[in-house]
């Protein structure tokens, strides 16, 4: 195994490729030899990250479209497949966080969060998985909040979304591992959530990207349907979250 180029020649699609985690994953994948397509909403920002990616690997590209719309997602996936020829890796890094508890969370905010975090993950997976099944290989990495496993005040929406993504990851593995399509989940503390006191300091986007690299390459090939917390072990401090 060439550890310098862990993804040599593989085709990767990164959703939410403009966000800090998404773009770091895309750049790290490109440095490891992958042909990367980033998908996100902001055309100007997508163009910027594509320029950066092309400095590393000419075969990278990016497309912009509405990530809350099912048809637009299918279209984005078609563009991605046309550009790459196939898809070996799908990283679902798109997502958003809006605060509120069960009472105060606005209906629109909640729907938006479900669309961004959960529906986009399911829709992209649905669109890309046939190509992976045809290739008899594929690696899906879903990146979400670590509130999937333990809670904080005022985070009802994102916690529900993260839990859904985690459960969806396991279910996808169950159905498609016979085609050698693996799915794993990375959970980390999202920016902007009050009271986060990670014990090893706040993880940088690079830390999440390294986890995404490990799940995408052969180093983790016996690990499926699993969850990796990149959060300095916060979940293990009983009753000591927050302050």
């Amino acid at each position: 195994m060439d550890y310098q180029r862990l993804l040599a020649g593989r085709s990767a699609i990164v959703t939410g490729g403009v966000g800090s985690v998404g773009r770091t994953v895309a750049l790290l994948y490109a440095r490891h030899g992958a042909n990367v397509v980033v998908l996100d909403e902001d055309e100007v920002e997508v163009e910027k990250i594509v320029q950066e990616l092309r400095d590393i690997n000419q075969k990278c590209s990016g497309f912009a479209g509405n990530l809350r719309d099912p048809e637009s997602i299918v279209q984005l996936c078609n563009h991605a497949i046309n550009a790459l020829g196939t898809a070996d890796i799908l990283v679902n890094a798109a997502g958003t966080y809006l605060s509120g508890d069960a009472e105060t969370l606005e209906e629109d905010d909640f729907i938006a969060m479900i669309d961004w975090n959960v529906n986009s993950t399911i829709r992209f997976t649905k669109a890309i998985i046939p190509y992976m099944c045809d290739n008899r290989q594929g690696d899906i990495i879903n990146i979400t909040s670590d509130l999937a496993t333990a809670s904080l005040p005022g985070t009802a929406g994102i916690a529900a979304c993260a839990g859904a993504v985690l459960a969806f990851t396991r279910s996808v593995t169950m159905d498609y591992i016979r085609y050698r399509v693996r799915a794993n989940c990375i959970v980390y503390p999202l920016d902007g959530i009050e009271g986060r006191r990670p014990l090893t300091g706040a993880p940088a986007p690079e830390d999440v990207a390294n986890a995404a690299l490990w799940y995408a390459c052969k180093m983790s090939r016996f690990i499926i349907g699993d969850m990796l917390p990149v959060n300095g072990g916060m979940d293990y401090f009983a009753g000591m979250r927050g302050e």
Binding site: P198, T200, G201, P203, A211, W214, P229, N231, G233
Partner: peptide, 9 residues
């Protein structure tokens, strides 16, 4: 260092 922020996992 790939797992610099993974502990207790």
């Amino acid at each position: 260092d790939m797992a610099a922020h993974v502990t207790g996992a």
